[in-house]
């Protein structure tokens, strides 16, 4: 089983559309993991039917038991997050502001404050419209993403892939360069970096590649909307060459990219062959690199 993770430093580059196209390409031979839990959009293209749903807990939140509280206000004095309000003569925790540090619970003399695990969202095991297993998640409003939820999604997907003896695992990676993206890279055999030739595109590509490089995972790049700025595109290619990153494909700015999404299709399903070739070529190149590495 080979695991391919698709990432991009900034939003709006087409990362999810490309990951979903790879998922279409490998069909039932793949398991899909949507680790972009901040903006989990892959299900809109792959239309999974949910088979299993579980709550996910992350971090803690404080809760004041009004029966035990003696209104001394000691908790509000130590809270650095302004998360304890005095409303109607009572101290109350504001769950959105509470960061779960537990300081209030430690200083509360009557022991009226309890820390309990916070539900931060749900994770699902589903069957995509192609009949492939898919693991995805939804964060609650105001909840914070963490490496923990990403690790959970990946682990469930990997267990399925090994148990069902699938050849591929396709991962839509997390955005940014923090803990979630490190977590989505863990165990990957190949990383696909998606970028666009804009001032922020190259900047974010460099930052995210620095993370990938540390883990020594082979990587390739797809430049989307490549014809929007040829000079910037050339600079990106220069960066790829200097860093030993394979250029997997370039895709020109093409309204079909969005039209496919509107039809709730991946770009491989949509009837515009100019979008099919780059994806197929990219995937063949990845297979080739993985094969070479094996030998």
């Amino acid at each position: 089983m080979k695991e391919i993770v698709v990432i991009s430093g900034k939003g709006g580059t087409g990362k999810t559309s490309i990951a979903a196209a790879f998922a279409t390409l490998v069909g039932v031979q793949g398991v899909i993991a949507d680790c972009d839990v901040d903006a989990a959009d892959m299900h809109l293209l792959l239309k999974p039917s949910i088979e299993l749903c579980e709550d996910f807990y992350s971090g803690e939140g404080a809760f004041i038991d009004p029966m035990e509280c003696r209104n001394c206000g000691g908790c509000a004095d130590v809270c650095r997050f302004d998360a304890i309000d005095f409303i109607g003569g009572r101290y109350v925790i504001n769950p959105i502001a509470c960061e779960g540090c537990g300081y209030c619970a430690r200083v509360c003399r009557p022991k009226a404050i309890a820390m309990s695990p916070k539900i931060s969202g749900q994770w699902y095991q589903s069957m995509s419209k192609h009949g492939a297993f898919m693991v995805h998640a939804k964060l609650g409003v105001g909840a914070e993403n963490s490496g923990k939820l990403v690790a959970k999604v990946k682990k469930e997907a990997k267990t399925l892939a090994l148990r069902e003896e699938k050849a591929w695992m396709i991962v839509d990676g997390s955005p940014g360069i923090g803990c979630p993206v490190v977590s989505s890279l863990s165990g990957a055999h190949f990383v696909v970096l998606v970028t666009e030739p804009t001032p922020s595109g190259l900047h974010d590509l460099e930052r995210v590649h620095a993370v990938v490089k540390r883990f020594g995972i082979p990587s390739g790049c797809i430049i989307n909307k490549a014809d929007l700025n040829e000079e910037m595109c050339a600079r990106i290619k220069g960066f790829l060459e200097a860093e030993g990153i394979s250029l997997l494909a370039t895709i020109d700015f093409n309204p079909s990219f969005t039209k496919a999404m509107v039809m709730e299709q991946t770009i491989l399903e949509y009837d515009d062959s100019s979008l099919h070739a780059p994806i197929q070529h990219a995937f063949q190149t990845i297979q080739h690199i993985l094969q070479e590495k094996k030998q």
Binding site: G11, D38, A39, V141, G142, A143, E144, N145, M261, V262
Partner: peptide, 26 residues
């Protein structure tokens, strides 16, 4: 971007929020 604590912090004392979106399923 997003819906977590940083976004809430940025909008919590403004008079009005303009949400920008695209006419697509995403």
């Amino acid at each position: 971007p997003g819906t977590s604590c940083p976004m809430v912090e940025a909008i919590k004392d403004v008079a009005f929020v303009i949400l920008i979106t695209e006419p697509t399923p995403f």
